[in-house]
């Protein structure tokens, strides 16, 4: 596991940078949501993104797999730059998994079909192989017995775990999480966080937007604090929770902790 380093400089950037954002700017009409964001996530690193509501966390993470299109700056994912190039977009989308706050499972497909859909149609896998893999993943997230059900028949926590399994089925090198536990009842949060901790331990590169400070403290290699479209501070958990540098970070942490 790479050791986080606050003072990451250009010289030290290397092949094991999985996500590189440099000067990323994004406007919605005349509203600027990202004002030149610089973030780098290394291979096998877990990066947690913090920030008040409306600070552009979701926008940033959605730019990384091109659900939103950034207008200025560079985003390079696993050595592939995100441009209008169809092939680069395809490549990045199949390498980056994403988990949404609202799960976004496909309600007309069974759990199993939800998971095998992309491997079959995008990765062109044989059906049997995809299903075997899906069952394996369902084991891993702890709900193999739900395979034949429809998403509407599952609890929120179960749905989110299916959503994670669905992303993992594409064998991504990077996982993006946008507030995966915010829509869940308290008793279901831990079951989802456990799955995410497992993933992190397994060495997955992850970028996680969350308000779960316990999770951030335990799992994150580094944290980013954003406000109004700017990165305010980057650092390790000890750095953040014991000795934040910026006033705004202190204020935010004092409110949330």
């Amino acid at each position: 596991m790479s050791i986080a380093d606050n003072a990451l400089t250009d010289e030290m950037a290397s092949r094991d940078d999985m996500i590189v954002c440099r000067g990323v700017k994004k406007w919605f009409g005349d509203f600027q949501a990202l004002r030149g964001v610089d973030v780098t996530v290394k291979d096998r690193e877990v990066m947690v993104v913090l920030g008040p509501s409306g600070s552009g966390k979701s926008t940033l993470i959605r730019c990384i797999n091109r659900l939103e299109v950034h207008q200025e700056g560079d985003i390079i994912v696993d050595g592939v730059e995100l441009t209008n190039d169809l092939r680069n977009i395809e490549k990045i989308r199949s390498e980056v998994g994403m988990v949404f706050q609202q799960f976004n499972l496909f309600p007309h497909l069974t759990v199993l079909d939800n998971i095998t859909l992309a491997p079959i149609w995008v990765r062109k896998k044989p059906k049997a192989e995809a299903e075997a893999k899906a069952m394996e993943l369902l084991e891993r997230v702890g709900i193999p017995e739900q395979a034949a059900k429809f998403p509407g028949q599952l609890s929120g926590g179960q749905q989110q775990r299916v959503a994670i399994a669905r992303s993992l089925a594409m064998e991504p090198r990077i996982m993006l999480f946008d507030e995966p536990t915010s829509a869940l009842d308290p008793e279901m949060i831990s079951e989802v966080l456990d799955v995410m901790k497992d993933l992190a331990r397994g060495g997955m590169t992850m970028m996680v937007v969350t308000h779960e400070m316990g999770f951030a403290r335990e799992v994150a290699d580094r944290l980013v604090f954003m406000e109004s479209g700017d990165v305010v501070e980057v650092g390790t958990p000890e750095h953040f929770f014991t000795n934040p540098q910026e006033e705004r970070t202190k204020l935010f942490l004092s409110q949330i902790l």
């Binding site: 940078d17 590189v20 592939v80 730059e81 190039d85 680069n88």
Partner: peptide, 19 residues
Amino acid sequence: MTLTTTDPNSARARHARPP
């Protein structure tokens, strides 16, 4: 499959337009 692999260290000018 050839990809427009880019070295993150090079300058901004490398911003290649896709075909």
